[in-house]
Amino acid sequence: MTNLSLQETLNYYQSTYQIVKKLENAVIQKGFQLIAPSFLENYNRFSGTNRKINQTQMVKLIDSEGNIKVLRPDVTTAIINRLMPKWDNGRSSKVFYNETVFLNTKQGIEEQKQFGVEYLGDADDAVDIEVINLVIELFNTYTLDYQIEVSDASLLKALFDSTCLDDAQLETLKSIIYHKNTFALKQFIEQYLQAYPYKPFISALFEFQGSYEKIRAQLNNLSLPKGVKECFDHLKIYSDKVQSNKITFDLSMLSELDYYHGVIFKGYLQNIPYTVLNGGRYNTASMGYKKNISAMGFSLLLDVFTKEVLK
């Protein structure tokens, strides 16, 4: 194996630039405007806003006055931190970004390029569908073999609310669901949910995936916790209006980020071993702001995406 020559290296950067430019043009045509939030965030505010981001993964810096800063590990939170103080009630904004995030990993500090959009201010099904269709359009532009997994973050929250589990037990249950650990779920139900009225539903949780119609047939005649049926019924609109046959609904889909409260989705590419795209609906109140602005967005791992396109 030989190293790339200078010209080959420059050609590589030119090719990746063209891919990114095409992504940017696609979202600009849909009315999204570029935003470039700060690299540095106040550590206390950032970790308070986004409790799910592992604090050991944050890259911390100390300024000359002893204040702890963090090199942002997530762009969405940084955008919200930038826009919320200036936000006028009743407005809506469509922004996109092409930014780097930083994470402390076992291999050292990792830089990750992310491309994404945030649609702020309009809590509307049409917005959700527009954003998911935009993802599909981006994948289709490069004729990539993709799958998109869709659920509603409120569905599992409704399930958790219907139990009498304490915080530690809930964390265990979330870990079991995150790993789709069928055996551990069975043991957990036997240990903690013997008298739970919706035992048939939770016992079969990992089987509720596929097309909307398939899941609807599975749920037929099952007693569901309060709120679960409403969340599931609401998913029908994505089955009807999202323009792709590569959508799979998965009711046991658990997001790594706890600020989502409506539709959530993940994008997978055939040749990439992990999730390349995460998205969903959230509101800023759940991120610690007094103003409650509803928002919808997604984030794409740009480096792996461009590498896949260039293959």
């Binding site: 799958q147 997994e149 055996f183 995936q209 997978y268 055939q270 990439i272 071993p273 992990y274 999730t275």
Partner: peptide
């Protein structure tokens, strides 16, 4: 012994 599955494979080859 357990059967483990890659998350992407799970979606493509469910």
């Amino acid at each position: 012994a357990k059967a483990i599955v890659n998350r992407v494979s799970y979606r493509f080859k469910y």
